[in-house]
């Protein structure tokens, strides 16, 4: 895989909030078509790193390359344009609107003179198509998001990422608040995305899930990227060791 060009490459990314240095000089590569896990303890800086990739936060320093080209991601829209589509931890859904309007939130389809009017019909059809594609069972695309289950909401958020033309789908703890059944639904979703050739970045605290669905695993510790492993060549112990920092101390001692 490493002879391929990375679809996403970070070089020396740092970010601090006042005293807290949330992300320190991170270098990281993600390759096309893989499911790449990002793990680390609470406060390790995963969400912060992801937000910088998605344009929700600006890095203090460092650069982000998309498909080898230097990218300036200052606003969420910039990320969408580059094919990076986040599924935020809180999903960023508007509960009082229906599935369709959430799918096209901020990027609605229009028609008519000067493209002035919303194309409700085409949006509904597109929504249904994408939901079918990810095997989601939302019975009615006109249902309010408020009335959907956690797994269904996740599907809406992922569907939105796809509709936005997402090549790299980033999921921040998609299973954190879900029950067994709905968790499985989300893992299926990741599987489906992989089979469609999408790149998935998957943040989770559940090592077993991570080992189950990913191709590679990267670990953050106290804002630093401590290493990346192929899922097939590692095990729970090694990853947990890296997460809690014992591995790092060993490495530091060796140097």
């Amino acid at each position: 895989m490493s002879n391929q060009q990375p679809i996403l490459q970070l070089r020396g990314i740092s970010k601090s909030f006042g005293f807290v240095q949330a992300v320190k000089n991170v270098n990281w590569e993600v390759y096309p078509g893989e499911v790449h896990a990002l793990v680390g303890d609470n406060g390790a800086g995963k969400s912060t790193l992801i937000k910088m990739i998605c344009g929700a936060l600006l890095p203090d320093s460092g650069e982000i390359l998309v498909k080898g080209a230097n990218a300036r991601i200052a606003e969420p829209v910039d990320a969408f344009r580059l094919g990076i589509a986040p599924v935020y931890q809180d999903l960023a859904l508007v509960e009082g609107r229906d599935v369709v309007m959430n799918m096209f939130l901020g990027d609605e389809l229009t028609h008519g003179p000067f493209n002035l009017f919303l194309d409700h019909k085409r949006m509904a059809i597109e929504t249904q198509r994408v939901l079918d594609e990810i095997h989601s069972r939302i019975p009615n695309v006109r249902e309010y998001v408020r009335r959907l289950s956690g797994g269904q909401r996740q599907a809406v958020a992922v569907g939105r990422a796809l509709i936005r033309g997402g090549e790299v789908i980033i999921m921040d703890e998609p299973t954190a608040a879900l029950g067994v059944e709905q968790t499985r639904e989300v893992l299926n979703l990741i599987e489906t995305l992989r089979s469609r050739g999408k790149t998935v970045i998957f943040i989770s605290h559940n090592i077993l899930q991570v080992l189950q669905v990913t191709n590679r695993i990267s670990v953050m510790f106290h804002g630093e990227m401590v290493g990346t492993r192929k899922t097939s060549e590692t095990n729970e112990d090694e990853i947990v060791g890296m997460i809690v920092g014992t591995k790092r101390d060993v490495l530091a001692a060796q140097e």
Binding site: P76, E95, G96, R97, L105, F117
Partner: peptide, 22 residues
Amino acid sequence: HTRLGAHLYALGGNPQAARLNG
């Protein structure tokens, strides 16, 4: 029937989500 309207509803419903979606 316009994007402006859809955006107004989205902003009132969840300002954070609206902003994150551009």
